[in-house]
Design a binder for these strands. Structure first.
Lengths: 333, 333
DNA sequence: CTGTTAGCGCGTTCAC
DNA sequence: GTGAACGCGCTAACAG
């Protein structure tokens, strides 16, 4: 299989141009005789033809690929986003190249350099840092770049992210309808997205006149189950009992927090009100009242894609940022 | 940035060969004079150099990429496997190209054809079908191909999968230590992996002398929460109450089954013994006794990769299949 | 130690 | 209606 145009031309006796016309469906346009077309088509039906993308890319300076750099492929949110982006890409015959940085700035830089060297036609980055990025990207190529999920600011690239402030605000409001107070356990605290969630939390506390909303917030640098365990451990020690209501900055932190309650207290009281960022169908399994925030992956992917092809269609950049609303999900309440 | 070798050669006045030697770190070997090397290195430090993979691929007939076709990117198991494979690839400076088939044979074929056209150096397929695959792959290219996760048989490619029979056997044994009987709710029933799990289940039932182990098995074509709901619905109707112990062929089916108990009965009795294929940390959240089977993603990825590079290193294919053991995980018991 | 050259397969432009 | 030729940037082989 997988003959080249030149091989087909030699085998059938027609010129390369002629063969190319029938392959590209331009035989009508250039009035290729029906029999030559038939001959060529028959040959291809038997032996096959496979476009060589390397040669094509070399010539056209275009690879029909989009690069996507994510912190973690095993994170359900990024996996879903990758899936959504991939579908959009396929519609335009683009191949999505996804690479994980594993939250390592060095790997992130290498991934970006690699994708650029492979001539991606666009680049989507969910950055895990911002320090060394600008050098890499400055006056680089004419490749459209879109930042995603984390807004470290100052990088003047279009950025697409969820409305984390609104998410924090709405979730906290909903929880404070049920209980008079609420603790917030935060992993990956220095990340801009988390900062926004915290601001939403504080604003909702302020609305209810809850004094020093800030003292209800506990921070950890990592986003992990061990961070969750650690944060919950401190909270239980301070309160001398598990909290009546708490929310977490991510599913990982929630998992850790619940593990900690289980191991320290023995079981998880069904009356505890739980809140968490990022939704997961597994939350169905909890008997507790659960409030969660689901990011709109489809909308995010669409905005990212739109930003990517804006420059290709020669359009002006409108506003630099897209902020996508997220959705509150309630269980057992 | 991103000059070509030729540009650097022109700008510095040295020949392409000389420039290439210093770029490839062979200046020692070919005794490039220290000053010419310095000159070239300085130029590159300022203007940068970026390898053009398209040109390289065209010349070498090698793309330094591996293709990976999976049924569903949002499935945690495949996401983890992709992550593991990606790490192995990066060690060898290979880029992993992952494409989802969304369980659609047509998309699967297109994905494979696309990856082949892009000149992948190896192809890993977790097939969602087997009917049309052979035509696509027959006498294709010299690209090493490895099948993964689902063994539809008859395709004479090396195949890597978990020991589903052993998984089914061990999980069922463990459950039958706790309860006198156990129901098995199966989604995606025609899949070979599921068939193996069923065989393991039946074998364990036979060991205990449980009559007609087969009548405890309920099947659905789909692997989904709705399949789980449907299967549990039928089971509850037949028993007139929820089962004392049941296991599911996947997390999705489990979710559906639990949802159904919740909606039909009102709540999930904590004494129900639950078993499921595929593990998830979220299972920590259940108060019930839970037995699960975790596939060894790291080992699977390693075996897949080994199979992939076997032909490259000119080694013989040893046995055609790799069966990787999986691990039993128990919670609250 | 350094320079020259052919060609990988495709797309484009111009000639018959 | 069809053919020929050039060049994209890189690698490898050979020439000095």
């Amino acid at each position: 299989m997988s003959k080249t145009v030149e091989e087909i031309s030699r085998a059938t006796g027609f010129s390369i141009t002629t063969v190319r016309f029938v392959i590209n469906g331009q035989s009508e346009k250039f009035r290729i005789s029906a029999k030559t077309r038939k001959l060529i088509e028959d040959y291809i039906a038997i032996h096959g033809y496979s476009l060589n993308y390397a040669a094509r890319s070399l010539k056209l300076k275009r690879s029909d690929t989009i690069g996507f750099v994510v912190p973690d492929l095993a994170n359900a949110f990024f996996a879903r986003l990758m899936s959504a982006l991939e579908i959009l890409c396929r519609k335009r015959d683009l191949l999505l190249l996804t690479v994980a940085s594993h939250e390592d700035p060095e790997l992130e830089n290498r991934a970006i350099a690699n994708l650029l060297a492979r001539g991606v036609d666009g680049l989507v980055i969910a950055p895990c840092q911002t320090a060394t990025l600008p050098k890499l990207l400055e006056n680089k190529t004419r490749v459209p770049i879109v930042m995603f999920d984390r807004d470290y600011g100052s990088l003047h690239y279009p950025t697409v992210l969820s409305d984390n402030f609104q998410g924090g605000l709405e979730m906290t409001r909903r929880m404070l309808q049920q209980e008079i107070s609420c603790h917030f356990l935060c992993g990956h605290a220095e990340s801009p997205s988390i900062q926004d969630r915290i601001r939403g939390f504080s604003a909702a506390c302020a609305e209810k006149g809850i004094p020093e909303g800030g003292s209800l917030i506990r921070l950890d640098a990592e986003d992990s189950t061990s961070a969750g365990r650690h944060l919950m451990h401190g909270l239980i020690d301070d309160l001398q009992h598990p909290p009546r209501a708490f929310m977490c900055s991510s599913l990982l932190v929630l998992e850790g927090a619940l593990q900690q309650i289980k191991s320290q207290i023995g079981s998880i009281d069904k009356t505890i009100l739980i809140g968490t960022f990022d939704d997961h169908t597994m939350l169905d399994l909890l008997p507790n009242r659960v409030v969660s925030i689901r990011q709109d992956e489809a909308a995010l992917a669409e905005r990212v894609f739109a930003r990517l092809i804006e420059p290709m269609s020669g359009k002006k950049r409108s506003s630099p940022h897209d902020v996508v609303p997220c959705r509150l999900i309630c269980r057992n309440l």
